[in-house]
Design a protein around this nucleic acid. Sequence first.
DNA 1: GTCGTCTATATTTCT
DNA 2: TATAGACGAC
Length: 749
Amino acid sequence: MEKKLSFSVDNVLNDPQKSALLEINRPVLILAGAGSGKTRVITHKIAYLIKEHGYAPWNILAVTFTNKAAKEMRERVYKLLHMSEDGVHPYSNHSLWITTFHSSCGRILRREIDKIGYKTNFTIYDTDDTKSLIKDVIKANKLPSPSENLYNIISYISRCKNQFETPEHVIQLGMDDGDHFVQQVGKIYELYEKKLFENNALDFDDLLIKTINLFETDSDTLKHYRDLFQYIMVDEFQDTNPCQYKLIKLLAEGRDCISVVGDDDQSIYSWRGADISNIINFGNDFKNCLVVKLEQNYRSTNHILNAAHSVVRRNERRLDKKIWSDKGEGLKLKYFDCDDDRSESEWVVKELLNLHDSEVPLNHIAILYRMNYQSRILEDALNREGIPCIIIGGIKFYERMEIKDMLAYLTVMVNENDSIALKRIINIPKRGIGETTLGKIDIISAELGLSFEKAIDYCVENKMLRNPAKDKLLLFFDWLREIKKKKSDMSISQFFEYIIDEIHYSEHLKENYDNYDDRLENIRELGRAIVQYESEQMEPTLEHFLMEISLRSDIDQFHEEDGAVLLMTAHNSKGLEFENVFIIGMNEGVFPHYRSIDNYEDMEEERRLFYVGITRAKMRCYLSSSNRQMSFGQIKFYKPSRFISEIHPSYIEKVITDEHDDIMQTEQEIFNHYYKKQGENRKILDKLANSSNRIKKSEDIQVGDILLHKEFGEGEVIKINEKGDMTTVLLSFPDGNRLLILKYAQLYK
DNA sequence: GTCGTCTATATTTCT
DNA sequence: TATAGACGAC
């Protein structure tokens, strides 16, 4: 039977897309290949529900992972509903719940969190704040400083949190296994959680966890939101972690009002706890679900799709599907292997200029890489040729020192319990309140279980602080109280300007930083963001603004219309598409990343990441590698990436040029080249570690040879004691003779 | 408590 | 390379 739609999807959607849209009485799992129009399905389905089935916009919850994806989805729905782009008419700006997981939770908690003991003016901590808080916790509680680096501790805690492991349980686990690290982290975790609560702060994970807590402890609230969200859609479902999945289940389980879209081949966030089994097990939790595969790609030509497929099909853990398009074969991928990273970026620039000559606009070109630092050398090369470029990611705007300073000021005005924000600003500009004083207060706060502010009072009352520090503290808090009073008399932007003046922040920047111009400009940019926020919101509040800001990242506000080449990591490119895509640094240890080389599952993820990269390209895809790369001031040698050889040869064309520097054939020559250039840099000697000049056998040397040791320098061979594997050499170094085991000593000719 | 200098040290990726 | 942290001088 044919269904008549006044909201026409007949010419916009293909058959599988349509079936995914029309099914609203069963759960729907949409397995959507790259470029198969999954956003189109979601947005049309939202519009369809509203227009054809009378759903109110606020009764639909659609969640994704990035603000950018959410924003795009919102705009597309507005268009379909003929709303204005800011969504104000005919529904209010708040009417649509098309957001990220984190901001939808933030929005819920902003209203409800007092039900689980927090105050609604809570602060959201980013990774930076989390790091500071953990440092503080270790110090204040006089815990031994852990041998592992902070990042490992933070991610361990985050993993525990996302799997609903309590600190007590983690500590117990650590004791049972005699695992010292786990015990230690468990302790830090416990104190960290306590401190977060004291500070009335939530970290990113908490936004989800506390929402779940809320729903689990307060059934009325859960019921309210279950009734509110009559239909739920999840984009990028392959990226959901246990927490996100649980949240969705809480809201939708037992009902049929859910559609999820995902592509297991594009799962690239397992390091953040994303679990592909969520997509694989979806059918178990949501019975009788309709599975739709979208395999037609609307983006790329087939050589690109086939090349991408020939790589990703090597993964064992994947659902079988193959994307195709009706756009013809198109061009093969172009691959160029370069001598070093400098010539690699020059090659990219050259190809890029060729494209430009054939009238390809610059904003149709993206250059992707595995790690942010790879952008630098490219940026230089592009600048040399005067090609404008925009780098996405990297040092993020909202993570800049001066931005964080000012946001901390605003935060303190809103949440007086936030010790991280308070400590950040208490001595900026210099007020003579230093580490020692703050450390003392932290310790008291930890020992007596007092909040930071209470601990200050306690220290003052009990005369525990010496006079200059004490007076300055009191002075500061007097000042702070005065400032806070002004808050209600002004708009957010006025208040912001007022604080800047009041603390003489521009003077502070001028006195302390060479690049104060840039920093001042950033502050102005933040001011503009505030003004913009105020103009967009019907009821702007500082609390809400700060939340928006803390969940925002750089990629959100890039505009395609800028006539510039885009540079970004492969991760950041997900969900985007470009006529022409370059992927640089196709080397073992770079892409795939060296930390995934020894781990099969990680390697599969790298492969998926590469798959994501290739499938961004509509027309042309360029790949390049380089044998030598300058990284952190050192030259490193690399082999071409295994992924290059994993591409079926019929879809890739290797570029041969005559521009290789034939002069440097051997490792020795390469070494000499740099050695001469950079002088006696010991670090350079490290590079020899893998070179052919490493002496491993006694046949390679004789008495009288001069050998090189990276620490001891040059030494003359005095004696060789043949003992098979354990052969030793006696060498005379500038600082004396040494006996070394040939096999282990790093000696070079 | 602050400032400057030196050294060690780390390098991935939505929110 | 670049930057955070340690250390010592004031």
